[in-house]
Simulated assay, not measured.
Amino acid sequence: MIFVTVGSQKFQFDRLIKAVDALVASGAAESGAFAQTGACTYMPQHMRHEAFLDREAFRVRMDACDVVVTHGGTGAIIGAVKDGKKVIAVPRRARYGEHVDDHQTEIVRQFGEMGLIEPCMDPADLPAAYARALSKDYLPYKSNTARFCADLVEYIDSLGGDR
């Protein structure tokens, strides 16, 4: 099962919803899909969907899926990777009115280079990205929060500061 999330931005991401809808229509996603469509104007024809999900409904959908297809937001990516899901991330692009700039392109690229996700830079490439995601294993997410905090404490101590 695929869970699609485009987040809660005020911007549409119709290109992604259309691409997943076409993937489901093609039969490639045998167990189907559910999409959280946000501000999208395109209404999927081949998968169930809701514009927004509350926290509990989101958790239920996340728990039920094998693959998460998401926009390139760090929160969505990290949340899905922490849950041990295979993640395909597609960056929103400013030129299509999906965001104010193209910062998600770099986010998706970096997570892909780290071996955590399957980057898909264009929704038109989703069928190939989906096939790769099904056949690959990805690295687990490891938080660096503890290391960051230890480094910060060490730095403050080196300045003679109080904790």
Rank of each mutant, 00 (worst) to 15 (best):
D66P: 00
D66E: 13
D66Q: 08
D66R: 09
V67C: 13
V68S: 10
V68N: 00
V68A: 12
V69W: 03
T70I: 15
T70M: 08
T70P: 14
T70R: 07
H71P: 13
G73Y: 15
G73E: 00
G73K: 04
T74Y: 15
T74C: 00
T74R: 10
G75Y: 11
G75P: 08
G75I: 06
A76K: 03
I77F: 06
I77C: 12
I77E: 08
G79V: 03
G79A: 02
A80Q: 10
A80L: 08
A80D: 10
V81F: 06
K82V: 14
D83M: 15
D83Y: 12
G84W: 12
G84V: 04
K85D: 12
K85R: 13
K85Y: 04
K86D: 12
V87N: 15
V87H: 01
V87E: 04
I88E: 07
I88K: 01
I88R: 09
I88M: 07
I88A: 15
I88L: 02
I88Q: 05
A89S: 11
A89G: 05
V90Y: 10
P91S: 09
R92G: 05
R92I: 09
R92A: 01
R92L: 09
R93A: 12
R93K: 04
A94P: 01
A94V: 08
R95H: 01
R95K: 11
R95P: 10
Y96T: 01
Y96P: 15
G97L: 03
E98T: 09
E98D: 10
E98M: 14
H99K: 06
V100H: 14
D102E: 13
D102H: 13
Q104D: 10
T105S: 01
T105A: 12
T105K: 15
E106Q: 15
E106I: 14
E106M: 11
E106K: 15
E106D: 10
I107G: 10
I107M: 04
I107A: 04
I107F: 08
I107T: 14
I107D: 09
R109A: 05
Q110I: 07
Q110R: 15
Q110S: 14
F111D: 06
F111A: 02
F111V: 01
F111K: 11
G112H: 11
M114I: 11
M114K: 04
M114L: 03
G115S: 05
G115P: 14
L116M: 01
I117Q: 05
E118H: 13
E118A: 11
E118C: 05
P119G: 05
P119M: 06
P119D: 02
C120Y: 07
M121Q: 09
M121R: 03
M121T: 12
P123R: 09
A124Y: 01
A124P: 00
D125Q: 08
D125R: 01
D125V: 09
D125Y: 14
L126H: 13
L126Y: 12
L126R: 04
P127C: 00
P127G: 14
